[in-house]
Amino acid sequence: MAYKPELDIDISLVEAILDRIEQARQVSSSPEVADAHQGRVSSSPQVADARRVGGAAGGKVSGDDLIPILQEIQEAYGYLPRPVLDRVSERTGIPASRMYGVITFYDQFYLEPHGKHNVRCCRGTACHVSGGKKVINSVKSALGIEDGETTGDMLFSMETVTCLGACALSPVMVVDNTYHGRMSARRAEQVLQQLKVEEG
């Protein structure tokens, strides 16, 4: 992948995430967190972080926590921008190569920015036998993009997912966090048309 400098990335978001984690690492050597590791309950968010970040690894930030950290960063940025990953590598010592290995293995990490609206079409078995492919094709043609792509105006991304677990309502499409059950090619088109109108 060619390196594209991304100028408008707000690096402070990741700094804040890492600050919080590092702070938690310091807290994690305190008696309070030592207790927390043994299961004592505490409502302190720092302790909760320390438990989450270092719980099993003896209070140190390590590669063990890479996936939850990446998930948090993606939550903040919408995807995993390269400058942000470089910063994580610098501050944690986790090699960028190791991070990229993990990121490219899992379907739900994105290295490219995503559209404002995320359209996910299920290609699970129940959806497949109930005509899910027709819904997928109709979404692709309505948005003019393929699986995993984003529209030029950055309004829509579409992806297919293995199973959303709503098989009894197949075929299923999820737009942002709204589930649409018993879809047909035509209804899928209508849902997207509605959104396009709302976006002007």
């Binding site: 309950v41 939850p68 998930q71 997912v161």
Partner: peptide, 28 residues
């Protein structure tokens, strides 16, 4: 946890146990 059914000395016993949720990232 708030009721003491997870954590240290669960329900007054000498057993400690807690649970953490980890989310998958999309790999069957």
């Amino acid at each position: 946890r708030q009721l003491g059914l997870l954590g240290e000395n669960i329900a007054g016993s000498d057993f400690n146990f807690d649970i953490e949720v980890r989310m998958g990232a999309g790999a069957f």
